[in-house]
Design a protein around this nucleic acid. Structure first.
Lengths: 121, 121
DNA sequence: CATTGATACAACCATATGGTTGTATCAACC
DNA sequence: GGTTGATACAACCATATGGTTGTATCAATG
């Protein structure tokens, strides 16, 4: 089914707005239509509707028709996609630290090679 | 020292650009100055410098003077701040699932209460 | 100390974004 | 089937963003 082709730009852009993050948060546990969502914020219904559209394009929420309303639900998958990228960065970071530790271990036999004076490249 | 007052807007906005994410990735393991970074991308030095400035304002990178260059380093803390928010969302999601399971368990004794007809407010 | 390598910043442009109001669609319900 | 509740969408505006070129700063280095 391919939830999202991992297009990070719209994903993070969608998360870069306080109102949209709050919609995501609400849509995790609540089952509100767009109008009900809009009542929580100090802006017009249309503005909120546009925010919802942005979130939907980013794959962060889905809408399901229920009666007259379109109930907004957060898509966990998209959140995980974003988190996974950050995890990868963290992993890279750890790897770098490990590499540095190895280097330090290697040069343990020749201690004051780097000591007290660092000629920079 | 208060690395970042958890201002998510600039944080996610900074991550919502392919070039900037790539700079973050590079700056995790490399130790490049702004000019060296710029050479990796098909845009002007000034454009890259602006991207670096955006990342710095978001707290995602720091610069350290080394010789003539300003070496760009990724700030793990900021990445973790972003990840933590996503983790919280995921946690909320799990909590909702748990709650739903509880409800299902509760109504196990009185099965067809909700069955075949849902009066929707 | 004058030069130069590396960076920062200002001014400008095109397009994107976040908000508004107004209108159109469209399924529920009487 | 006409009315209405809920949503979508168009047009518009102000500001932000991502790019450009050009100029200024500023510390290393000869």
């Amino acid at each position: 089914m391919q939830i999202a082709p991992a297009d990070f730009d719209p994903l993070f852009a969608a998360l870069a707005d306080h109102t949209r993050r709050d919609i995501v948060r609400r849509a995790i546990s609540a089952e509100e239509g767009v109008l009900e969502l809009a009542n929580h914020y100090p802006m017009s219904f249309a503005a909120v509707q546009k925010h919802v559209a942005v979130l939907e394009r980013a794959g962060l929420i889905t809408k399901q028709r229920i009666g007259r309303r379109r109930v907004v639900r957060t898509n966990l998958e998209a959140l995980l996609v974003a988190r996974r990228l950050l995890d990868q960065y963290e992993e890279l970071w750890r790897a770098r630290i490990d590499r540095m530790n190895e280097l330090i271990a290697e040069s343990d036999g020749a201690i004051d090679t780097v000591e007290t004076k660092g000629s920079k490249r």
